[in-house]
Design a protein around this nucleic acid. Structure first.
Length: 882
RNA sequence: GGGCGGAUAGUUCAGUGGUAGAACACCUGCCUUACACGCAGGGGGUCACAGGUUCGAACCCUGUUUCGCCCACCA
């Protein structure tokens, strides 16, 4: 075995990350092994948009998946982690348009073909950049399966899905009110509209009866649409019902419209009368359909008043609102205005106010798909983690509305529908048709629109694996094991994948959905470029290393709370990398080239303890990862390595490793050291792949291959020695000795010459006696004695009790009697508090009868011990006072 | 209007029924041959509030306060 005996003194991530990543790729270690007989584990990555670069949210999301994939790989699964990117229709088109605008070019200057070329250029650059960034994070994706939503294969899947849904009448085209962004110049789905509370006005406007007998008053926030009014509605069972059938004159026009009844009107709200503008309000649109009212459009696709708006033509909606309000007032129609807060929709890509707009669009009939999707969660075929997210899902799915999927953009999957100029039949086809399927005319034109980007994302779990073909990937890895994502895209993406997966694969797309929290900055703000508080993961990797960043993200991860990240936190975990590195360095300095056998007869308490702790850690981390609790697992490993292994075990192993306990002891301790490090490196590898690989090789395991495919440790029953309690006593005694030393201000470099532990309990006494050299070493002293309580307490000494032991440290002249008395009094007081509380419980008959036997026993023991401690401390106090 | 989550040390957060924990920050000592990127010791909390359940509550239940998020056809 060839070991690296001289590790560098400090941990330097930059020298090893690139080296190992390319090594892993060369050895095809992340390949999915479709044909092996191992059990499958698969995840499809949430494909990042090709709009820019990875942010901290991606880093967290990817780290989470990578930890699970790497662990499963070591546990003997064939793992497919399928990577890729999303074309992100509207977002990408916007950024490319923006970058062209900087050069004074508009997409219309280039034409559809020319513009798309530019977007593909962009995709090449930024898509590649994102992949590079994922690799720097250490993602163990199978890059041979990398996909892009506009790939040929995925586009074929999109077409197949569209056509099949159309044939089943689950996709239809029609003229409806949709959300329109006049800046992006496209329809948006309901989800792409963000509602915000804004200040606005309620305008109270009178509509005089045609017969001159009076008027109705309506309250509106949009006076500019009065010009498009075609009716007034009241509730049929309100006091206003008497007005039904009357006609009113619409202000600002010479139009006369009827007063109609409709249940949608809330008699309690506003004036109880509603103006109906079917072309510019979703509610009014429905009222219009019910009453067969005309749809009078007065606003065009640019958000400008059109030719139907008379004198307002050419004004923007905002301008027209001001102007029409002025006119209403001047003409005596405006009664009053009132300031109100109401929610206003904005385009979630550009922030422009969204207009309800009447136009021909394509829709997915969502309800039938959603019912199946709800069922899949209800009967447990899909599990949400944390569980409460199923409520969110149900709420949306059970109230789902049809999904507007057509977008008036250029970047995306073109809708596979062709219109015949001769018979106006619509041909919907998976392959490009050359003639109308109805009349055979060759004069057909393809729909100009593209599909919502989420349409293709919805197919991601199976389109990426080759559907509609039957492929080995689909056979082996669908349904995927797990989806890891943020709650912000539950509706956009997760719900739709479930619907599409069930529809086309007849099987859920994933078994488990893990919803993780959002990453925020250190003051809890959402990171955004405009706020300038973005922490770039790549910067952090450059500064602290990918392992430190990953460990930080893992350790901070908890369910149900946002994660506040700051560079200082990452610094903490970089120190952990350094600690691990130096611990390994120490081990390697003390190991021989050949591995040593652990001789059970040579094991001392601390050896048994660290082996036991190590096996506990193995079991615990394995279970926590099964539950996706990477936070607990990471924190547990941190504490184990730093606290147990470094602070205690390595310190206690030093004398043996120096050869001061004989050759047999040295060899066994070397064996223990190697065993523990091997296990620890494996358990840590999913979290911090680079440094663990470097150390794995340094320990000389090259011939076993990379740690990436090392065997995941199994708990060892033979290492459950049951010595944690005994070790605890030793640790407590060491701590007390150190504490007494500090109390007496004895300099650490001074080796103490004597101390006495008085104890009657035989087992404790034996434990301490056998560990005396270790305790002396850690407390930096000699002459430690274990004696029965009946033996005299050394004079002029500091003392303290711990468990059944009384520890006394003679300090001679430096004894400060007054302060020692004070300290003892405080110690007595604190023990008395515990004893008093315990006595209280024991005096409670209900406690004795109802609490479990073990708890009562423990309480009794504790009180007894406390009482004994107090007695001894009081004796000490008396002798000090003499 | 409906739903969800949070409130624990100065700060950021773990902790789902049995004596309150970590990291950072702070104080005191130490370059003890793996690590000063470190070691040892220390101070610091009415677990938001009020009830309830329980022998026992940071933890379970109810209500309140407060911060945040999501959904909804608030004309």
């Amino acid at each position: 075995m060839k070991r690296e005996r001289e590790l560098a003194k400090g941990y330097t991530p930059e020298t090893l990350e690139e080296k190992w990543y390319s090594d892993w790729l060369c050895k095809d270690l992340f390949d999915a092994e479709t044909d092996s007989s191992k059990p499958p584990f698969s995840i499809v990555i949430p494909p990042p948009n090709v709009t820019g670069s990875l942010h901290m949210g991606h880093a967290f999301n990817n780290t989470f998946q990578d930890i699970l994939c790497r662990a499963r790989r070591m546990q003997g699964f064939k793992v497919l982690w399928l990577p890729g990117t999303d074309h992100a229709g509207i977002a990408t088109q916007n950024v490319v348009e923006k970058s062209l605008a900087a050069q004074g070019i508009s997409r219309h200057d280039l034409g559809r073909e020319g513009f798309l070329e530019k977007v593909w250029d962009w995709k090449k650059v930024y898509g590649d950049r994102i992949i590079t960034q994922m690799k720097r994070l250490g993602n163990s994706c199978d890059w041979k399966h990398e996909r892009f939503t506009l790939d040929e294969g995925l586009s074929r899947a999109v077409r197949a899905v569209f056509v099949r849904l159309y044939k089943k009448d689950l996709i239809y085209k029609g003229k409806y009110i949709i959300n329109w962004c006049s800046r992006c110049h496209t329809a948006l789905s309901d989800l792409e509209v963000e509602h915000e509370e804004r200040k606005g006005h309620f305008y109270y406007v009178r509509y005089p009866f045609l017969d001159g007998t009076g008027e109705v008053v309506i309250a509106t926030t949009r006076p500019e649409t009065i010009i498009g009014d075609v009716a007034i509605a009241v509730h049929p069972r309100s006091e206003k019902a008497a007005l039904i059938g009357k006609e009113v004159r619409v202000p600002l026009t010479d139009r006369v419209v009827p007063i109609i009844e409709d249940n949608v009107v809330d008699p309690e709200f506003g004036t109880g009368c509603v103006k109906i503008t079917p072309a510019h309000d979703p509610n009014d649109f429905l009222v219009g359909l019910r009453h067969d009212l005309p749809q009078l459009q007065v606003i065009d696709a640019d958000g400008v008043m059109n030719e139907n708006s008379g004198k307002y033509q050419g004004l923007t909606v905002e301008q027209a609102r001001v102007e029409s309000a002025k006119d209403l007032e001047a003409q005596g129609f405006l009664i009053r205005t009132e300031e109100i807060e109401h929610s206003v929709g904005h385009c979630h890509r550009c922030g422009t106010t969204v207009e309800p707009y009447l136009s021909e669009q394509w829709f997915v009939r969502a309800r039938p798909l959603a019912e199946v999707g709800v069922q899949a969660v209800r009967d447990g075929r899909i599990r949400w983690i944390p569980e409460q997210w199923d409520k969110t899902y149900f709420q949306w799915m059970e109230n789902i509305r049809d999904w507007c999927i057509s977008r008036q953009l250029w970047w995306g999957h073109r809708i596979p529908a062709w219109y015949c100029s001769d018979c106006s039949h619509v041909t919907v086809s998976e392959t490009d048709p050359t003639e109308c399927e109805e009349c055979g005319s060759r004069d057909i034109v393809q729909d100009e629109d593209v599909l919502d980007t989420w349409f293709s994302s919805a197919l991601w779990p199976f389109s990426t694996m080759g559907w509609p073909d039957e492929t080995p990937e689909l056979r082996t890895f669908y349904p995927t094991s797990l989806l890891v994502t943020g709650f912000d895209i539950i509706f956009f993406w997760v719900a739709r994948m479930i619907m599409m997966g069930l529809e086309f694969m007849d099987e859920v797309p994933f078994r488990d959905v893990y919803i993780h929290s959002l990453i925020r900055d250190e003051s809890g703000q959402k990171m955004s470029k405009s706020k300038g508080n973005v922490i770039d993961p790549l910067d952090m990797i450059d500064q602290y290393g990918a392992d430190a960043l990953r460990m930080t993200l893992a350790a901070l991860s908890t369910q149900g709370r946002d994660i506040l990240l700051s560079p200082a936190r990452i610094e903490t975990y970089r120190l952990f990398m350094n600690k691990l590195w130096n611990a390994a360095r120490f081990a390697l300095m003390n190991l021989d080239d050949e591995p040593q056998i652990i001789e059970v007869g040579q094991l001392q308490l601390q050896d048994r303890w660290i082996l036991e702790r190590s096996t506990e850690m193995t079991e615990r981390v394995t279970n926590l990862l099964d539950e996706y609790n990477i936070g607990e697992a990471a924190r547990g490993l941190y504490d184990f390595v730093w606290g147990d292994l470094c602070d205690w075990y390595l310190e206690m192993a030093k004398t043996a490793l120096r050869g001061e306990e004989g050759d047999a002891r040295k060899k066994t301790v070397q064996g223990v050291l190697e065993e523990v490090f091997r296990t620890t490196l494996c358990l840590l590898h999913p979290f911090i792949p680079f440094v663990t690989e470097e150390l794995w090789m340094a320990f000389g395991y090259a011939e076993e291959g990379s740690i990436v495919r090392a065997l995941w440790p199994a708990p060892k029953p033979e290492h459950r020695f049951g010595v944690c309690g005994a070790m605890r006593i030793v640790q407590d005694v060491v701590r007390v000795l150190r504490n007494l030393r500090a109390e007496a201000h004895l300099p650490p470099q001074q080796w103490l010459q004597r101390a006495v532990i008085r104890v009657d309990d035989l087992e404790t006494g034996e434990t301490l006696r056998s560990s005396l050299p270790r305790i002396e070493e850690l407390a930096r002293m000699k002459g430690l004695e274990v004696q029965p309580l009946s033996s005299p307490r050394p004079s002029a000494s500091l003392s303290s009790v711990v468990g059944a032991c009384e520890v006394s440290l003679p300090v001679g002249d430096v004894l400060d009697v007054a302060s020692e008395i004070k300290r003892l009094e405080q110690e007595i007081a604190s023990v008395e508090k515990v004893v008093a509380a315990g006595r209280g419980r024991l005096n409670n008959p209900n406690f004795l009868t109802r609490a479990p036997e073990a708890v009562v026993e423990k309480e009794r023991a504790q009180v007894a011990e406390g009482e004994a401690q107090i007695v001894r401390m009081e004796e000490n106090l008396r002798s000090l006072r003499q």
